[in-house]
Design a protein around this nucleic acid. Sequence first.
DNA 1: TTTTAATACCTTGCAATACAAAGTAGTAAA
DNA 2: TTTACTACTTTGTATTGCAAGGTATTAAAA
Lengths: 109, 109
Amino acid sequence: MEASSENVRSQMRKGVLEYCILSILNHKEAYASNILDELKKANMLVVEGTLYPLLIRQKNQGLLTYRWEESTQGPPRKYYMITDQGREQLAEMDAAWQELVQCIETLRK
Amino acid sequence: MEASSENVRSQMRKGVLEYCILSILNHKEAYASNILDELKKANMLVVEGTLYPLLIRQKNQGLLTYRWEESTQGPPRKYYMITDQGREQLAEMDAAWQELVQCIETLRK
DNA sequence: TTTTAATACCTTGCAATACAAAGTAGTAAA
DNA sequence: TTTACTACTTTGTATTGCAAGGTATTAAAA
């Protein structure tokens, strides 16, 4: 894929990544690699340097919590879980997303 | 609407505004106020300070051109038109948007 | 004539975001 | 003890959206 096309996609991702993270963690707790895998499966490519600060931001906002868990494969992992406040935010984002989809549909008529 | 909710929407708008502008100008040429009206009709609130730099950026990228036109109602207006390159970009953005919608659908299953 | 209002375009400074790149650290195998 | 793998973190940069304020033209009101 050419560079400009990737840039278009990167710009469009802005603002929906937080929505994606909350969506994923709404199903089950996960650590960073799990989340990256889920995003990859959904065809949403994200890199570590984007994800980690985002998880920390959402944790600081009270949308997520985490617990450490030992791993037999390497260093301990930070498993993130969504909070009640995170679920409220997710509902808010569902509404915002639906509105945005509607906006674009109107403009693309 | 509460502040946090507006912030969610503002963040999601990032990256799709350029798409909206090209969509609007794909139908007919327009000057800034026309475009703001169209966006408002589609429930996408944008302010002048956002729109003007964006139009200039897209013009500099070769996606738009403009011509001046006298007005009986005040100062002359800059009417923007989409270029062939702009239409190519619009097609690219259509694809990117459809992919993004599909991504979110997958994650929100 | 001068002032005011309306319209239109533009700029500046700030905050938030995504990303590339590099860094830190634990575990296990060579 | 060195290397490879995994995992988490930080730094610097570019882009974007927005609030706020500024410039300029025209026409109507004082």
